[in-house]
Nucleic acid binder design. Structure first.
Lengths: 212, 212
DNA sequence: TTCATTTCTTGCCAATTGGCAAGATGACGC
DNA sequence: GCGTCATCTTGCCAATTGGCAAGAAATGAA
């Protein structure tokens, strides 16, 4: 039971010892973003089950990201602050994703981003140190780690290209198609900043699309 | 001498056998983007010296990226095509950089991007297979590989945030500060598409800034 | 040099997006 | 239920950016 953290502030999350790591676990291997039980107990047992209540933070600015989280249930959002202090949503996460801040986690530097649960979340987390040990000893798992990095990289590139070549309306429509679930869990202003526009503009775009 | 490729088209580049790989080579280790001779002959000898004449391509659309290039001299640009067929510049490379297309190289998939030399270039290249062998056998070198990935990731994220939070004028000024050399080697239209604006807008921005 | 091509600038106007503020709607706690 | 606060929409106007086309300037080839 232990390991449970109660807290009035929103900076902590509950960490539950992995009681049944070896049965019900997550397998990303070559499964391309689809969740299923781990097939490798030696890997699985290094992960801890964690739950994150809605609105609480997996990572806050200034901390060093030390959760490499395989998300099983729930939705999260990452956001940073621009020079004027405004929140900018940098990413959304849904089940089947690896959730962590790449730069902070691997460089062991203070994060400029926050990662917050939009809904109650569940997943399997591993620390930097343990993850590195696995990478060191298991070449197949190393492949997995690299694949996750490369995948994130490619997605970010695609999004960048969309920012350059597509209108806000097109970007909105694509997000609506590719990630409809998040619209149920997040206010439009977060989606707007993710798309690179204001909530006012997004509202107008939605009105225009509704008339069509 | 051999290995030289002459070609009227712009799709090939010259590949010169690494005659002096062990003396004058490149060391990125923990050197954070600063070039100096390789200190590890076992690594160095896996790389081949290549030169790329101006305007020729290191990578073309549809091919699988198989050069992981440590750039020693010269400048390159990566570009893709949007749905209307227009060129969009996705990246610029300067000496001290690793030049390759992450997704195509690591996933062994056809590249959607081209990488073209803006000036005569020189550097040290390694194939996917050899690079993987090094990663497999040399943990320190693995660290280097990951660091390059993470670095590229972080840069792309920063650029993304700039696209969302900064005006085109601010993005232009930052590029001018951080990467002034490329302005000597590339027409403004390429810089414009990299910044996410048209060449017309960039021209106006430059006029405004000149008056200040 | 001369010619052709590309690059860069500029004017005109339209489309997109933002800033601000007011009002409507909805969610949540007491 | 009631009140409060966040969310969402809308109107008005301004700023930014784009599309197009013409002309100037620079570049490169013969």
């Amino acid at each position: 039971m232990a390991g449970l953290v109660a807290c009035g502030r929103t900076y902590l999350y509950i960490r539950i010892p992995a009681a049944m790591s070896k049965e019900k676990l997550i397998d990303f291997f070559r499964n391309d973003n689809h969740i299923s039980p781990f097939t490798r107990p030696d890997i699985a047992e290094q992960f801890k089950k964690i739950t994150i209540p809605k609105n609480q933070f997996l990572l806050t600015e200034g901390k060093i990201s030390d959760d490499y989280l395989l998300l099983e249930k729930g939705y999260l959002r990452a956001f940073a602050h621009d020079t004027d202090g405004n929140e900018v949503t940098t990413n959304f996460y849904h089940p089947g994703r690896v959730v962590f801040e790449v730069s902070s986690f691997f460089n062991r530097t203070r994060s400029k981003e926050n990662i917050q649960a939009l809904t109650d979340c569940e997943g399997w987390s591993i620390t930097y140190e343990k993850l590195n040990n696995l990478f060191h000893t298991l070449p197949e798992f190393r492949e997995f780690g690299r694949a996750m990095l490369v995948k994130g990289f490619a997605e970010l590139k695609t999004r960048m290209l969309a920012m350059i070549t597509e209108t806000a309306e097109e970007r909105y429509e694509h997000l609506l198609k590719s990630n409809p679930e998040i619209f149920q869990h997040v206010p439009l202003k977060h989606i707007a900043s993710y798309l690179g526009i204001t909530d006012t503009s997004l509202s107008r775009i939605r009105k225009d699309l509704a008339r069509k």
